[in-house]
Nucleic acid binder design. Structure first.
Ligand SMILES: [Mn+2]
Ligand SMILES: [Mn+2]
Length: 234
DNA sequence: GCGAACA
DNA sequence: TGTTCGCAACGCGTT
DNA sequence: AACGCG
């Protein structure tokens, strides 16, 4: 296989795809270029989820079955059309994270080996006030998808009681996220408090299938991971 | 995945 | 020109 | 402060 790169013209930018023929999905033989094409096909929906939001890069440089690593800081070498925002941590350290808002930027992060996208629940212009409350459903090993769905339906009832609408999506290989748009009015600590209360209420209504216990050992069924709403979580 | 260092 | 090597996170809860 | 967790 020739190792020549592929240069795509996307949204008026030239995006280089390195190792386009590299197999990223050994079971099916799909390549890195296949993944790029996939993301371009679904770009409208993908961008709706990540646009304007800083994101952590989870890089699978050796394909979907290889080990991944997280990267918060945008690579130093990048096109001038890659946007970043500077996050500041309590430690005083900072990180310039990538903000993807168009298809060219999307293809660029996919080329880095990003298979799934991990945006923060904030917009780049206000890093301290989330506009999403995230209900993170993490099934413990062995819990069937149907049970994740059942818990989601309970979550929907609780949301409805508060006049909120949830937008579900798959997350990882077995979980689900339910995103709820909220006003950019509360800091992370307050949004997280709401998530804790929400998790406990779902657990109260469906104790046989849902849990809000932090320790793995104490969990049964589907874990409502309220800490997903803490700062610096994606 | 990539740039730097090295043969 | 080809190969090797180092590097790529951090907040929060519990004890 | 160290560890579990994602
Ligand atoms: Mn999850
Ligand atoms: Mn989680």
């Amino acid at each position: 296989m020739p190792a020549s790169n592929e240069v795509l013209e996307i949204a008026g930018r030239e995006v280089t795809i390195t190792n386009p023929d590299k197999v990223f999905y050994p079971r099916t033989g799909h390549t890195k270029m296949d993944l790029v094409r996939y993301y371009l096909a679904v770009a409208e929906g993908a961008l709706r989820g990540v646009s304007g939001r800083p994101m952590a890069l989870k890089r699978f440089v050796n394909g979907a079955e290889g080990e991944a690593f997280f990267q918060k800081r945008a690579p130093e070498s990048r096109p001038e059309w890659i946007e970043t925002v500077e996050l500041r941590f309590p430690s005083g350290r900072t990180a310039s994270e990538v903000v993807v808002s168009d298809a060219a930027q999307l293809a660029w992060v996919v080329n880095l080996g990003c298979i799934d996208l991990n945006p923060h629940p904030v917009r780049g212009d206000d890093l301290d006030h989330p506009d999403e409350l995230r209900i993170d459903l993490d099934p413990v090993r062995g819990v069937p998808w149907s049970q994740v769905r059942d818990v989601a339906m309970v979550a929907r009832e609780v949301l409805a009681d508060f006049g909120l609408t949830g937008w579900p999506k798959t997350s990882g290989s077995r979980g689900m996220h339910i995103y709820c748009r909220i006003e950019r009015r509360w800091p992370f600590t307050e949004v997280r408090r709401a998530a804790v209360a929400f998790a406990r209420e779902v657990e109260r209504r469906a104790p046989d299938i849902a849990t809000s216990k932090w320790w793995k050992e104490e969990r049964h069924g589907v874990f409502l991971d309220y800490n997903q709403n803490a700062k610096d979580r994606t």
